[in-house]
């Protein structure tokens, strides 16, 4: 079962093209969307939410978003990095407004979350710190117990402690009901390394990589070798390489194969960030 299925979603802007994006968000999974700023993460999320009109099909809970928008959105929790209901309200008013939108709005849960996150319910949101604002947005997004959570850059601009707290909220949310899913975008790849089950990497409007996170961390490797050693490696066995004065660094998606085939010892475990850089900056 997939909670989101998107096929051939395209969107054209001046000087930017989201080019036939297709991927799934399986039920029970946390999917991380990574990519540089302007790579198309937000455009993808806006297309899924039908905030912008794009080509292709988006299905949420097996239903077409364009046809069943209102019904689907009852079971959807959304956090956008720069947009919220109103900054001139207090958390208390947010509760009063939201219970008119969502059939399943759980006032008790919302108030518990406010307490748990240490948020005052009588202060205007515009006077909140950015970490508090994000926690409030998340509390608001999960208080109607949605089946799917979509978050655009939920950790950007926050300090490491708050970021970790937020990741823990996501873990708890998905543990409560294992048919739930989360789709989140971030350019902070370390966050996604620790939380996502699948990584989708978007670059210049295209998906360049869509793999399980553990595969990325276990199977991918960075070979450090000399020019001579590099010349022996077949082009089919690596993704891209970077050369410096003293060594070649080569990214492979199957390090155990490389180890056996070429008898190379120095293969490092890469981080997602390093992998991303190899895709963007590496040579082929």
């Amino acid at each position: 079962m997939n909670n989101i299925e998107i096929k051939n979603v395209s969107k054209k802007y001046d000087g930017f093209l989201l080019d036939k994006i297709s991927f799934d968000v399986p039920s029970g999974a946390i999917v991380g969307l990574i990519g540089e700023n302007g790579a198309g993460k937000t455009t993808t999320i806006k297309s899924i939410l039908n905030i912008i009109k794009s080509d292709g099909t988006v299905k949420i809970f097996n239903k077409d978003v364009k046809q069943n928008e209102k019904e689907i959105k009852q079971d959807l929790g959304v956090v956008l990095d720069d947009s919220f209901l109103s900054t001139y309200l207090t958390p208390k008013y947010i509760n009063s407004v939201m219970k008119d939108f969502y059939k399943n709005w759980d006032e008790e849960k919302y108030n518990d979350l406010l307490k748990q996150f240490g948020l005052p319910d009588n202060k205007l949101i515009k006077d909140f710190s950015s970490g508090m604002k994000m926690k409030l947005k998340i509390a608001t997004a999960i208080s109607h117990n949605p089946k799917l959570l979509i978050l655009d850059e939920p950790t950007s601009g926050l300090d490491p402690v708050v970021r970790n707290e937020i990741l823990d909220i996501f873990r708890k949310y998905i543990e409560e009901d294992e048919t739930r899913s989360i789709l989140l975008s971030s350019h902070i790849t370390t966050d996604l390394e620790h939380i996502s089950d699948y990584i989708i990497f978007i670059d210049k409007g295209k998906i360049v990589l869509n793999v399980p996170t553990d595969e990325l961390l276990e199977n991918y490797g960075i070979i450090k070798c000399s020019k001579e050693e590099f010349s022996k490696i077949s082009e089919d066995d690596y993704i891209s390489y970077k050369r410096s004065k003293y060594q070649y660094e080569v990214l492979t998606s199957d390090k155990s194969k490389i180890k056996k085939k070429y008898n190379i010892r120095a293969i490092d475990k890469p981080t997602i960030e390093e992998i991303m850089l190899f895709y963007i900056k590496g040579e082929r």
Binding site: R171, H194, T213, D214
Partner: peptide, 19 residues
């Protein structure tokens, strides 16, 4: 422990635990 809760506690993907 369930796959998801162990994954959460170890801060790794549930696919790893599942494997």
């Amino acid at each position: 422990p369930s796959v998801r809760s162990l994954a959460n506690d170890l801060k790794i993907s549930f696919l790893t635990v599942k494997r």
